[in-house]
Design a protein around this nucleic acid. Sequence first.
DNA 1: CTGAAAGCGCTTACAG
DNA 2: CTGAAAGCGCTTACAG
Lengths: 325, 325
Amino acid sequence: MPRVTSADVAQESGVSRTTVSYVLNDKHGAMISADTRERVLAAAARLGYSPSAAARTLRSGRSDLVLCVLPNWTVGPVLDTVLDELTRELADRQLSVLVHHGRGPRPLAELWRAVTPRAVVGFTEFGAEDADAMRRAGIQVLNTSLDEDPHAVFAVPQTRVGQLQVRHLAEAGHVHLGWAAPAEPRLADFAERRLSGVRTECARRGLPAPVVQDVDLDVGSATAAVRAWRSAGVTAVAAYNDEVALAVVAGVRACGLSVPGDVAVIGVDDVPAGRLSDPALTTVAQDAGVQARAIATAVAAALDGAPAPAADQAGVLRLVVRDSA
Amino acid sequence: MPRVTSADVAQESGVSRTTVSYVLNDKHGAMISADTRERVLAAAARLGYSPSAAARTLRSGRSDLVLCVLPNWTVGPVLDTVLDELTRELADRQLSVLVHHGRGPRPLAELWRAVTPRAVVGFTEFGAEDADAMRRAGIQVLNTSLDEDPHAVFAVPQTRVGQLQVRHLAEAGHVHLGWAAPAEPRLADFAERRLSGVRTECARRGLPAPVVQDVDLDVGSATAAVRAWRSAGVTAVAAYNDEVALAVVAGVRACGLSVPGDVAVIGVDDVPAGRLSDPALTTVAQDAGVQARAIATAVAAALDGAPAPAADQAGVLRLVVRDSA
DNA sequence: CTGAAAGCGCTTACAG
DNA sequence: CTGAAAGCGCTTACAG
């Protein structure tokens, strides 16, 4: 069954392809009689016509797609929400958001060439040659991954996350702090940034350096870490995220100790499971909506050739005090 | 800065566009001298040439994209993993996977027209007219959402999930069961299927019908539900998923009761937080790898025009017994 | 108000 | 072994 083209619609409605195009694209300048208009629309509907985006993109040199490239580790709940919101935000600007997961074995180039996006938003860093090639092809390249990236349009200030954790713990009187690192090596870049914030803030307050322990998402690993912290005199632990924090809580419990009495724990992300755990997790929440809007604004600005507006990066973070610290 | 085209490469290397195309596509039939070949490749590299996928798609009538359409509620951890794996699986077949989140305000048609995918995999049902239009455009339409869908290529047997939960609870001697439904209305379709499995299995075993309670992801809501269950004589609760199960556990605790002594709880998904909770959650795990491979196989079969192979749907599910039931 | 024609960049028979 | 040419389906000046 051959494709229905604008020529078919033209023939069916007895007009030229030009007119079909004008009608279907609601062309402003051209004045089409209401009668013709109606005829064309009816024919298009009858034939089930849908314009070829490939042809349109080829002709106009631009699609209306925004490609988001995710890192090759599992998307957390926050990023999920960011993508949902971003999709909604950009829809207002007639842009469709497409997400690519996990940087598989196929080179990124295959992908952006295949979709000809207007903009690519990286939630992970791409290689310099990839970025250059995309820019050469007229694609706006935006990056949101890490704070120091010069091309970053919006980076959640990861060091600030660590600072907030320490501030809360220190103000509660804790002096000897621990840091629970994720075992997953692909998280290392993020973890490093957060830890660096923890270190800085400890130093600034004259506290001893944090005692770092890797913590897997199982009780055994967490128990070992808790023992190490205890013997180092640690009374409060800042965790990479809520999941790791939950593991730490489980470890403390397994040692026959209690949270926050023996060891206080603070996480990051504010996941539902943290609200429901015993004790409920104190955490640093990231506002997905703020992130999504900032990225959407940056994308829109880039497409308009405008300078990226300064995003209120501090506003994303919020301390949520519950029972674990 | 104008686009570099194959004509530029041809000129730069002193050959025709035909030859450029042959070299770049590793055309089998055509014998190109090693010398020419090299010259073309060098010129392409020097110019930073990247072929226009729009033109290629227009010319050949097909792209190498597979579009996954997600429902408009947040992706769970299982689906996340499925997408990662699917991306990997299909990369072996030279296909790139693109994911669309959340069915925003833009009509789906805009999207598939804009990317001209080879296949669309729906993790949510689309309207009949959308599906028809896609099929008319030569796109393979696959659906994975719910068991009864005739177009479903691979549906996790949701009713079976409920059956497994009941079987475990019943074999542990429980007679009066509760079912914890998610408060989120967008989950209703899934929840309904699981609950139906619970009902069926209760009936089959001659147990009274399950007592259904909506449970929000907060302690207050869960506490109210637990009180209702207790006064109905319920001793074990099957929850929609692990998050809801965690809420139920929190509710039981808030009532001053214990899990599983007073109320046993079983979830679905096997999320890390469930492993770490106190007590550790008994749950029904879904194997994301099995799902991803089944979908990948189905997509490949559809593209080859082959009939979809029967997937081993039962193998996806596995009971994980821990301490909560 | 509407039509004929060019051209976006590519691939592929068809001739040499 | 390589080139000239057609055509995928669309939009948009340019003429009427």
